[in-house]
Amino acid sequence: MEEAKRNPVNFEILYNTYYEKIFRFVYQRVDKKEFAFDITQQVFMNAMLNIKKYEYRGLPFSSWLYRIARNELNQLFRKNSSHRTINIDETDLRYVADEMKVDALEEYSQKLPDVIAELDEDDLQLIEMRFFEKRAFKEIADILDITENNAKVKLYRVLEKMKEAILNK
């Protein structure tokens, strides 16, 4: 880290270590992999440009990179919302439905994609990070720059909102 701060050429180790993680974070949120590769490259460029600002004070470097990626994506989606894509594995939907503690699991699983697609970006990020990317609350909190407890509370409020939306469908 300190070497990378002194000379960007030394950033390569960090680049190689975190490349796949960042790519998958980006690719989870866009449609085309070529586009995701481009954005990933830009994330690392931003990281290199701002590496001197990073100091470890309880925030893991990976979470710092994820924040940069999230910011990069948010800027992109503000310019063109059509770039935003939600990528779901069907098995993950059952986890979401299960977490909502509902009886008609199958029925809920089928309606979830539509409900998820209608969530605003902040709520969507919580669902994605918790259920599709299987992140711990601590990591979610680091990325979103909120407390762990806050992350839990927010997530369960989103689930309640989704449950209500399904019942109204």
Binding site: P8, V9, F11, E12, Y15, N16, Y19, E20, F23, R24, Y27, D31, K33, F37, T40, Q41, F44, M45, M48, S81, S82, R84, T85, I86, N87, I88, D89, E90, P113, D114, I116, A117, E118, L124
Partner: peptide
């Protein structure tokens, strides 16, 4: 409404690794 992909084909670690371009970055 956002576009939703269900069960999109996964991408391998090898393919991801093949796109690393630190040289271009630097």
């Amino acid at each position: 409404k956002k576009k939703v992909n269900i069960n999109r084909e996964s991408i391998s670690s090898e393919e991801i690794a093949s796109q690393k371009r630190f040289g271009s970055l630097i």
